[in-house]
Nucleic acid binder design. Structure first.
Length: 416
RNA sequence: GCGAUCGUAGCUCAGUUGGUUAGAGCGCCGGUUUGUGGUACCGGAGGUCGGGGGUUCGAGACCCCUCGAUCGCCCCA
């Protein structure tokens, strides 16, 4: 062997097989199915976008934009960014393709995202999300529909009992700005008791202080102004209609007045489905309304709502039952038998029977292989059987063995 | 970006205050069984102890650097 240092996988990336892959696929498949039921169209959007797509929409001062994006100049000198989230790219697609004509549009997507963060459990540099957006709908029903859909998804993948829907409103721009100002004033007055991190947040993202895990901050937040006192009548009404519809639909939720979202574009409804089973990475699905985003990208004022969920995080909570082994494993012995086995194997598979072949080693090895794969039947073909036009079929669960005409094997396997 | 813990065989781990040829279980390969799996018994292969440097007569163990993982902060899905 050449003395070459094998390159490692890039930090924060992972290779997913076996049970983890099963769980991952289960989440994606459930999402695809459910999004069809809810009338969403799947979209594919690029993994790379012009950097400005994200810089303008997420907010220049957010952590995602200011220090977590994979940004580089391509060979033509354009600034390109690997998408750190879906919403901005989908909004860009909405504008550049003239999809306004289809509004309101219900779109869903899934795929890899990239953020340059310190990896830990449930947090990776290449990670994957499922994503659902409704663009061009200002009605509270759009918010509700997305939440009902999220709730159904979590139920269907079987993790709803460990996850709680936290709901809040950030109000319209007017409410949000007034509240934000009141918060700044309040925290300015108490800046001596703020933690170092929160002092930092005071300039960049004061709403986030409400999310602080520092005990001193938490205490301070109890008496901080809450959004309810700053909501306009319209904003109040909007939120009331969302919560009422959720109750109508039987979706459980709790009000969390300290829930704010990290990205600048959120207005009105903000929500997170939170679990305590993933340590620091408790948010499993999150989103809200982003009425201002499309304008930030140079489009006409367009209301929109959406959410995204981390596939890895969901997959870690999911319990996928071990899938069955093949219905049959062929065990040919000798060259003639091999040819016969290829014919049988093709025949089985064309009849939608899960089948495989053990073609290495001696008889014992091949039987072991069939056993390890958890096959129901082993179909043994040697020269003796071949001469009689038969195969020996052994039931690996009961241990019983019978012979079967080769042209009857498909029927035989189907019946057992 | 900050703090803590960790990194020994394919996997999970043991390795005493630094002391000869670094161990176990599982897995893998072979045999008991040259056409019959799961069980059992016997044998075997497999390690530059994450990487680099240093201290020492001697380093898997101690020190420094580096890479990676995990946990927390931060951030977020």
């Amino acid at each position: 062997m050449a003395n070459i240092q094998t390159p490692n996988a890039v930090r924060g990336t992972q290779d997913i097989i076996a049970a983890a892959q099963e769980s991952f696929a289960h989440v994606v498949q459930s999402f695809e199915r459910i999004s069809r039921y809810y009338g969403f169209d799947m979209v594919q959007v690029p993994v790379i976008e012009q950097t400005s797509v994200f810089a303008r929409s997420l907010g220049e001062s957010t952590d995602v934009v200011s220090k977590e994006m994979y940004t580089f100049d391509d060979r033509g000198g354009d600034s390109i960014t690997l998408r750190p989230e879906f919403t901005a790219g989908i909004s860009r697609a909405f504008l550049t393709n003239g999809w306004q004509q289809h509004a309101p549009m219900k779109l869903s997507a899934h795929g890899p995202l990239f953020r340059y963060e310190r990896p830990q459990k449930g947090r990776y540099r290449q990670f994957h999300q499922i994503d659902a957006e409704i663009i061009g709908a200002a009605e509270p029903f759009a918010d509700t529909e997305l939440l009902i859909m999220a709730d159904q998804l979590l139920r269907e993948i079987g993790i709803d009992d460990g996850v709680t829907l936290n709901l809040n409103t950030l109000g319209d721009s007017e409410s949000r700005d007034a509240w934000r100002q009141a918060l700044i004033t309040y925290f300015q007055d108490h800046r001596n008791s703020l933690s170092k991190e929160s002092l930092n947040r005071l300039d960049r993202n004061p709403l986030r202080i409400l999310d602080s895990k520092d005990d001193g901050d938490k205490k301070l937040c109890q008496d901080a102004p809450i959004i309810d006192d700053y909501l306009t009548n319209e904003a109040q009404d909007f939120f009331a209609r969302v919560t009422q519809s959720l109750d109508t639909a039987g979706v459980d939720w709790i009000r969390n007045t300290r829930l704010v979202r990290g990205l600048d574009y959120y207005r009105h409804t903000a929500f997170e489905f939170i679990t305590d089973r993933l340590g620091a990475q408790g948010t499993v699905l999150g989103g809200g309304r982003y009425d201002g985003l499309i304008e930030n990208l140079g489009g006409a004022s367009t209301p929109a709502v959406g959410w995204a969920a981390g596939i890895e995080r969901l997959a870690m909570l999911v319990n996928v039952p071990e899938h069955n082994g093949p219905d049959a494993v062929l065990i040919p012995l000798g060259d003639r038998a091999m040819e016969a086995a290829i014919a049988i194997l093709s025949d089985l598979r064309r009849n939608y029977i899960i089948a495989d072949m053990a073609y290495k080693g001696n008889m014992k090895k091949r039987m072991q292989k069939a056993n390890i794969k958890k096959a129901k039947l082993a179909i043994i073909i040697g020269d003796d059987e071949l001469d009689r036009g038969e195969a020996a079929v052994k039931n690996l669960v009961s241990g019983e063995q019978q012979s079967c005409k080769i042209d009857m094997i498909v029927d035989y396997v189907k019946k057992s």
